[in-house]
Amino acid sequence: MGDQENPVAVERLMRLGTEARRRVIQMAARSRSPHVGSCLSCVDILVTLYFDALRIDKCDWEERDLFVLSKAHAAMSLYAILSLKGAMSDEDIRGYFVDGGTLPAHLDRTTSRWIESSAGSLGHGFSIAIGLALAQKLRRTARRVYVLIGDGEAQEGAIWEGAIFAPRLGLDNLTAVMDVNNLQGYGRPTELCAFEPMAEKWRAFGWHAVRVNGHDYTALRGALRQDPKGKPKMIIADTVKGKGVSFMEHELKWHYYIVTEALARQALEELEAKHAR
């Protein structure tokens, strides 16, 4: 059994994932913020990154691994996870997306030192992460750089500019994860463009690409631990938009819909039940 299958570690990540989802729902309901579905699809990826893959706790701040949330409309998920990490206070979280508040719906790095880069417009964070990874190579550090992009975001030309240059730069310290929930703002990537075969596209560009279930902690841990020398890594993570809340799952409308108090109660009850199991 590889360590990625360690049941205690996986169980812990699952609990953290459920708690992060609860916090996302609470944040969204309190602030009447959209993008709940996009946040829920990537919770498990972010949990695995922040509670398993990233070296950020047991090292000097200057030596930490770096994470860029390029699909920054999922900022609520990152905020929820940073609050679970103790890096953001309850007060920070209560100030999300409210008048006179603390945190905007897309990332502003001046709000917290844990936000490595501002982001919000799709296709930007990916190239920034390439720059961060190159800087580590130039300085010969052991720091690794991670970036999360969306499947809709993968339609941006900037992504493919980065895709064709990063392998040439030898950035094997860079891991990109693509959250493939197959629902973007107004349709499905697989219907709007020649989306598949996505992993093969990245392989053809010189990346080490793997495809996993983006809600399977064992699979995510395993994929994140792969260490292909000399190549940047792309993890295509198949996910479910709205994952964890039955009435939000696979629903395009939850890109935009607002979580009413009644719906929040219902969602939280479902998540409590999962937590109890």
């Binding site: 490595e116 880069s117 296709g123 930007h124 964070g125 990916f126 190239s127 920034i128 992460a129 390439i130 720059g131 961060l132 990874a133 190159l134 800087a135 580590q136 130039l138 300085r139 030309g157 900037a158 500019e161 980065g162 064709i164 240059f165 730069l169």
Partner: peptide, 26 residues
């Protein structure tokens, strides 16, 4: 040679990458 890159005909990636380097102190 270690502090020069031709990032080709890819202006969006070039500026984003430049920002990443600058975030790292370059």
């Amino acid at each position: 040679p270690d502090r020069f890159l031709n990032l080709g005909i890819a202006e969006q990636n070039t500026i984003g990458l430049a920002a990443g380097l600058a975030l790292s102190g370059f």
